[in-house]
Each structure stands twice: as C-alpha cells, then as structure tokens.
C-alpha cells in the first residue's frame, strides 16, 4: 500500500524552498509599497496569453508578402518592430536574419539565455539549458537532428531523391521536407 502523506500530514502542503522564497519576496515588496499584487497578475496574464510567437509569426508572414517590409526588417529590425509596437524589454537589440537555400540560422545565447520576449514570448526550458547552450555551438547539426531537422546540404543524391515524390513531379504535390518521416 503506497504511503499517503495526506493521512498523517493534515496541514497544507509545504511549497518548495524557492517557492517560499518568492512568497517572502512578494510579502516584503508589497509591504514596502514596491509591488502591487494586481499588477503582477496582469503581467503574468499578458505574457501567458497575449505575448507569444504569434507576434513574430505575423512579422515573418508580412516579410514574405511585402519586399519593402522585408528589406526594412533585415536592415534595421529595431526601428520596424518599435514602430509596430513590439519593442521594449528584452527586445531592444533585435537583429533579424534570413534563411536561404544555402544558409540556415540557429539562435543561441550562451551568456544569459536572452530571447526576444516581445516577439516570441517566454523562452522554452530547453533554450535556457546549458546542454543547448553548449551543444548548439559544438555540434549544431546533431542538435538540429534531434529536433527532426536535417539540412539538405549534408545529403547525397540518393537521400535527395528520396525527398522527391511522384506527385511532386506531376505538380500535384510538394517534395518531402528533409528529416520528415517518409
């Protein structure tokens, strides 16, 4: 019979050490008038529901259909995203780079996991792990492979031929993406 701690511990479940520390900080900062609990809830709600990768996606889509916008974004991303109201905290020094048939960009911050919050929201845990920091630099292709991404420049003719479907040659389909399951 598994031990059920609720039976012999009738008090509330004790939060973890860091969770207690955060509660203590909230208490102290609220008592000193530095933090307004309602404002904290509003910030969490904003980053949980409104600021996320859909904002970055809308800029990418606009760059795809509007060459002038794309050129401006590549030349001076900060000016463009500030004009659109997506600048601000953690979005002060954004550089936009473009993938092409012979260039695939992969972003990593090995210092403090900086990330363009106003465009992509809160980063996923793996982006902040030191495994990603170290391996993205040392063996980027191995990391990409774990994400299911294989770049075509590393593929021989047989592997490339495997991407070409009958329907893609008729024109009623598209070739398979490299790394996609066949």
């Amino acid at each position: 019979m598994p031990h059920d701690h609720h039976d012999d511990n009738p008090h509330s479940l004790l939060p973890s050490e860091p969770a207690l520390r955060v509660k203590a900080l909230e208490t102290i900062l609220a008592e000193k008038g530095l933090v307004d609990p309602a404002a904290l809830d509003a910030i969490i709600d904003l980053y949980a529901h409104e600021i996320g990768p859909q904002i970055g996606a809308s800029l990418v889509a606009k760059a795809w259909v509007d060459d002038g916008f794309r050129a401006g974004l590549l030349a001076d991303a900060n000016t463009v995203i500030t004009q659109l109201g997506h600048g601000g905290r953690q979005g002060e020094h954004v550089v936009v780079v473009e993938n092409s048939p012979d260039t695939h960009n992969m972003v990593v911050c090995t210092l403090c996991s900086c990330y363009p919050w106003p465009l992509l929201g809160i980063p996923p845990g793996w982006y902040k792990s030191d495994a990603y920091h170290a391996r993205a630099v040392r063996e980027p292709r191995a990391v990409l492979a774990e994400f299911g991404v294989t770049l075509a420049d590393g593929m021989d003719e047989a592997a490339l031929a495997a991407l070409v479907t009958r329907d893609s040659m008729i024109g009623t389909g598209l070739p398979r993406a490299p790394g996609a399951s066949t």
Binding site: K23, E26, I43, A48
Partner: peptide, 15 residues
C-alpha cells in the same frame, strides 16, 4: 509558458 507558479511570480516581480 511557465512551468511553475513561482517561476511566473518571480518573472512578474522583476518586470
């Protein structure tokens, strides 16, 4: 986007 409520609280206090 936060794995635990205290992550969100720490984030929000800082912002």
């Amino acid at each position: 986007p936060f794995a635990a409520p205290w992550h969100a609280a720490a984030f929000a206090m800082t912002v």
